[in-house]
Structures are given as structure tokens and as C-alpha cells.
């Protein structure tokens, strides 16, 4: 941890979905050696931000940089991205998927990934379509976390799994994470991941609501990040409800 690199930088990052704002002039700077919790209610722009950084969403304005580069071919070998969906073919087996990653990513540690599969008690030759949602999520985490990337982007990595598996997945994340990289976890289940976070970024309707060191935020607010989250957003949600404006942009629809 002798270097201190800025892994992610965004300036006035803006993205609209047909007029509806998903990100609104977002300025962020994230350094290496940090596990960052990206939290906010549904529709606050978490997924959109991760998509842009991963290079699968081009139509934005403002700047987004990964290690000083615009997301593109050069950054793709440095970024390990887990989207909030099943990105593998149904007919593949975990072994097929490991082969694919080993072929395309030079930073993929196939041996360690295989061990993690076994630790997750997954059958390397079982087809993905015969697996439960949680099992498939574990396969994906195994692929994503066993790359030696500089930036990990995990979109809701624990939402679909039972508490015991959550524990395993978080362990997998901690086990694989190294200090010269930056790891962003987006979630609305802050309670479960709170102890593993260094920093927290609260997004609200595409804008930065609050960001800071997790311990400092806990000290300042005198409670957990989870409680802070609730106090930040619940009052607001209730107010919107009272105003009868549930269709306020950013609160409904797209994650």
C-alpha cells in the first residue's frame, strides 16, 4: 500500500434515461486499498454508475475515468465487473466458465478459483441452468474475485442468496481482495456488509448525498451506517408518499 492511486474519477457525470435522470453531475474520486459501499434507494443511480465504469454504457456526459482512462478496451483488462444478472450461458458448467476466464483474462487465477468453487460446495461439472440463483451467483463471484484487477465492481452481489451464503461470499471477497485495488459494492442491504466497508458513498437520485469513512460516519452519527441510511432516506420517502408523488424521478423503476 505504498502507492496511492486514484482508481476512479468522475466529473459532472450525467446520464439520463429518456429524460429521466439516473446520474446528475456526479463528482467522485476513489482510491486504491478501499472497499467502498455504494448505497442508496432503488433508482439512485448505483447500477448506472457501475455500468459506465465497466464500459457497457457509453451514452453519458461528463467525465468518467478508470486509472485515468476513459472506460474502453484498455480499462476492460483492469476492471472486474459483476453485473446484477446472470451473464453466463445456461448450458455452461462452472468448469467451462473457468476456462473462458482463463483464456481471456491474463490476471485470472484458475487454480484459486477452482478451490473457491469447492469451498462454495459447487459441482464443477453441473450445468448452470440446473443451479439455483444463489449457486449461480457464487459461480459469478468466483470468476470475478479471482482476477487480479485494479477495480472490482460488484452490483448487488449478495441480494439473491441466503444469509449463510452471504457470509461465504463476503469471505470470498475479503480473501481475494488486494490493497492495490479498489472494490465497489453496490447494495441496499448495508446491514450485512457494513463491517467490511472502508468508505460509504450514498447516492440519491443520481447525486452524491453523503460520502466518507465508514468509522467516521458511525462516530459522527452515533449509530450504524444502516441506521444512518434509514434516517437519511426514510424521512424523505415518507414525505414523498405524503405528497402523493411516488413517481418522482429516481425513486421508481430502474435500479
Amino acid at each position: 500500500m505504498d502507492r496511492d492511486d486514484i482508481i476512479v474519477r468522475t466529473q459532472k457525470l450525467t446520464k439520463h434515461y429518456r429524460g429521466r435522470p439516473a446520474l446528475e453531475e456526479l463528482d467522485l474520486e476513489l482510491k486504491n486499498g478501499r472497499i467502498i459501499g455504494l448505497v442508496g434507494p432503488n433508482g439512485s443511480g448505483k447500477t448506472t454508475l457501475l455500468k459506465i465504469l465497466a464500459g457497457v454504457l457509453a451514452d453519458y456526459s461528463g467525465t468518467a475515468e478508470v486509472l485515468g482512462m476513459r472506460p474502453g478496451l484498455e480499462t476492460k483488462s483492469l476492471v472486474s465487473y459483476m453485473p446484477d444478472c446472470s451473464f453466463l450461458e445456461d448450458r455452461m458448467t462452472p468448469n467451462d466458465a473457468l476456462d473462458l476466464f482463463a483464456d481471456f483474462y491474463s490476471d485470472f487465477d484458475r487454480k484459486r478459483a477452482y478451490e473457491m468453487l469447492l469451498a462454495f460446495r459447487l459441482e464443477p461439472t453441473q450445468r448452470l441452468r440446473d443451479m439455483s440463483k444463489g449457486m449461480r451467483e457464487k459461480v459469478q463471484i468466483t470468476l470475478i474475485m479471482n482476477r487480479a484487477a485494479r477495480l472490482y465492481l460488484l452490483d448487488e452481489p449478495i441480494s439473491g442468496v441466503d444469509p449463510a451464503s452471504r457470509q461465504l461470499i463476503l469471505e470470498g471477497i475479503l480473501r481475494s481482495y488486494s490493497s492495490d485495488s479498489c472494490l465497489i459494492i453496490s447494495t441496499h442491504l448495508i446491514h450485512d456488509i457494513e463491517p467490511v466497508l472502508d468508505e460509504v458513498v450514498f447516492l440519491d437520485r443520481g447525486q452524491l448525498r453523503l460520502a466518507g469513512n465508514a468509522e467516521d460516519l458511525r462516530a459522527e452519527s452515533g449509530g450504524s451506517i444502516d441506521q444512518l441510511f434509514r434516517s437519511l432516506f426514510q424521512a424523505e420517502a415518507a414525505r414523498n408518499w405524503e405528497l402523493g408523488a411516488p413517481e418522482r424521478p429516481g425513486f421508481v423503476g430502474r435500479r
Partner: peptide, 14 residues
């Protein structure tokens, strides 16, 4: 489709 998230993040020139 959902698999596009993998295809588009492979470090392969378009």
C-alpha cells in the same frame, strides 16, 4: 441480453 455484460467486458477489440 444479460450475457452481453460478459461479452462487452472481455478485453477483446470490437
Amino acid at each position: 441480453g444479460p450475457r452481453g455484460y460478459l461479452t462487452h467486458t472481455l478485453p477483446v477489440p470490437a
